[in-house]
Amino acid sequence: MTRTSAPGVRVKDLTVVYKTPAGELPALGGVSLSLAPGTITGIVGESGSGKSTLALSLLNAVQPPGRIKEGSVEIDGLGNVVELTGEELRRARGRQVGYVFQAAQNSLNPLKTVGKQLLDLGRSHDFDDLPALLKDARALLGRMGLDGGRVLDSYQHELSGGMRQRVGIMFALVLNAHLVVLDEPTTALDMITQAAILKIVRDVHHERGLTTLIITHDMGVAAEVTDSLAVMYGGRVVEHGPTTEVLGSPRHPYTKGLIRAIPRLSGDIDEARALPGRPPTLGTIPKQGCVFRERCPMRIAVCDTVDPEPVTRDARTVACHAVGRPATPIVPKEYV
């Protein structure tokens, strides 16, 4: 285990806005989040909660018309990614930070074999020893249960969804990146393949000593592989803490609602209760006050006017006025 090489990540007050006809609207409203070196962190939330925007921010790759308005993303060994530009930024991508795309996405050039694209990757990052790169890739693919030689000779359309996803993971790891971001890595895969991919992610994470971030909307996936879990809503991290605690004793009313909404495999379907209302979209996020108040059962007067600050207690960060109004003075400190 080479935990020493796993980088830590500190996101501070990150605000990302999208330019729309109605002006610049915030997709991320001052998010702070730390990924401890060597851990797997999960981010869960509904569509539009800002999960993917946050993931892209780690590579300073928010796509226009979006832009990072303020805040910083510090990655050990790279510095503040938000300030990287041009060649420096390009070299960090792939080499230091690996990115795995959603399974359903076509993340490969349809006109070239996997192997040729791997060589393109090696040349882009000035690898002199291309045969060694191919060898590493074959080994990685073999490690994930694929015939490496055959996969490298294949075109994208010759691979199944699960195989493509493994190829995507190979591309993220083959340059020896130690921070890996997986955006919905198992969405659109069948249950068996999903389980296999998650096992691979967990095993490779431990073998290589990585810091891993997994974006998902599937609580089951989060529960299975992550060490710590961040819950996002309306462009904010509303709760963050060790996965077992967040899922076992949720504090934020949104997290509670999410968990209550999961149907159990056995038992009455009516036990699962859907959250009332709809998640906000870019245009409907309230300008002031708590973003969750419209759907919140614990709403109090102050929620209408003041956006709750994230408060850290017992290794748990929660952003809610109504939660555990502590007798002790609030110490705004993020979870590490």
Binding site: R90, R91, A92, G94, S107, R123
Partner: peptide, 27 residues
């Protein structure tokens, strides 16, 4: 297309990215 963004996020060089775009677009 997704694969162009993927190539960008893998840090592919400008020249290679240009070739990916051109060859797919010219088909």
């Amino acid at each position: 297309d997704d694969f162009i963004m993927a190539a960008e996020l893998r840090g592919m060089s400008r020249g290679i990215l240009f070739r990916y775009i051109a060859r797919n677009a010219i088909l």
